[in-house]
Write a protein that binds this DNA or RNA. Structure first.
Lengths: 102, 102
DNA sequence: TGCGATAGTTTGTTATACAGACTAGTCTGA
DNA sequence: TCAGACTAGTCTGTATAACAAACTATCGCA
């Protein structure tokens, strides 16, 4: 199969999902961020956001830290080295596939 | 919401699916193509390919023409103007969102 | 003590990607 | 001539997934 086509089909589906692209993009810039912040900036619903975070955590792309601010629980997210590299790889691969004519 | 994040979430999901990116990319280059050819070049299974074609047809992104070559049925696919512009728009939008830092 | 807010998770529904089974007919060779 | 293999797809079932609504648990305030 042609390399550009191959490129599309071998994209990392964990990263490929738009909602997760949003999360990873924010985290790649902000380094550390909280759930509420992400909820607001992404416009995703809590439930949806929560499950995407789990998915990214399972993939090892982000680290979740739970703590209490005063007496309220809070969740802090941080992109991992692996997550950063997955995003970078995804971007490069997609760019190559898209640019190679269209 | 920030414009780049918005950009991810408003991507055309019909185009966003890797298998369909493959199909559209091939069609954008080849102008007119047959099912069997697409099956080989994409590596997709018949069933899968068939359903993606239906999806793209419903979206108005490609035109399907059925005919007989000798006595065997054949299917010919052609990208529509709208399909071409959807692919172009998708590429531009994604590039903008991805490039705007990472 | 009861109501609304905060901070998420769990659950249920809906959609969709995918492959295998199936349809329909043609060609080939014993 | 008829059995088996091939062509060209479509249909169907399954497993995954995105998504939102409902729920859990706690806090703060009147």
């Amino acid at each position: 199969m042609r390399a550009d086509l191959e490129g599309f089909l071998s994209l990392d589906r964990v990263v490929h999902e738009p909602a997760r692209l949003v999360i990873l993009t924010v985290l790649a810039q902000a380094e550390e961020v909280e759930f509420r912040f992400l909820e607001r900036v992404s416009g995703l619903t809590k439930g949806n956001l929560s499950s995407h975070i789990s998915r990214l955590e399972e993939a090892g792309y982000l680290a979740v830290k739970k703590f209490f601010r005063g007496k309220l629980p809070a969740t802090s997210l941080k992109i991992t080295r692996s997550g950063r590299s997955a995003l970078k790889g995804y971007r490069e691969q997609l760019n190559r596939a898209l640019q190679r004519r269209g």
